[in-house]
Write a protein that binds this DNA or RNA. Structure first.
Lengths: 95, 95
DNA sequence: ATAATATAGTTTATATAATAAACAAGTCTA
DNA sequence: TAGACTTGTTTATTATATAAACTATATTAT
């Protein structure tokens, strides 16, 4: 038995939830993610930025009905990182 | 889809590895855990104390061949917490 | 005997990270 | 045009993780 390191970017509840959403949807905006995760706006803003800086998420800012609208989508790097994380943590979970 | 909160005690790489070991073995000493996890002694000492304070691990200190020997075993509370954590995080992992 | 090294941890100090609270910039509505 | 709402960002505080330093005892070599 061995314990592979867990990607610290993904080993965070909110960032993992965001990536988990995006891996299925492949596009979601700030408000949608906010509702699905139950996060605060401040925390979500920070964590989306972190995911962006890690190259896991691509962020596109536009306007929708006059309001700012932030769209997020997973990058290929993000998909790979998620898959790696899932594989790694499953080793910890099996009893 | 919803994202259940992840027990912050278990949502840590080293603590999760320790509990993962103990859930199978139901008894392991400090040095054994050290080898299996690859952690530093300092970090392991802190995290075992955290698990103990959370009531997830019972710690028994004795001497073995003249040296201090720290044995750890999961409590019932620890088992339940681990099961809950596994259930919760699996929701994040399924694509 | 005693100096050097090894064992088995604990404590402390620091750097990083998570999160709430405060702020900003614009929009809608009465 | 004042007040409330939307959609975020920035800042400040708290908490956490971890490495480094330390403690205490035991063993080995001289």
């Amino acid at each position: 038995m061995s314990f592979a390191p867990l990607d610290p970017i993904l080993h965070n509840q909110l960032r993992l939830a965001v990536v988990s959403l995006l891996v299925s949807l492949e596009e979601a905006d700030f408000t949608f993610i906010l509702e699905k995760t139950g996060a605060t706006r401040g925390n979500l803003s920070v964590q989306i930025t972190n995911l962006q800086e890690a190259g896991y998420v691509k962020v596109t800012k536009t306007f929708k009905d006059n309001y700012p609208n932030t769209k997020c989508q997973l990058t290929a790097k993000g998909v790979k990182a998620f898959e790696g994380y899932v594989k790694a943590i499953k080793e910890y979970l099996k009893t």
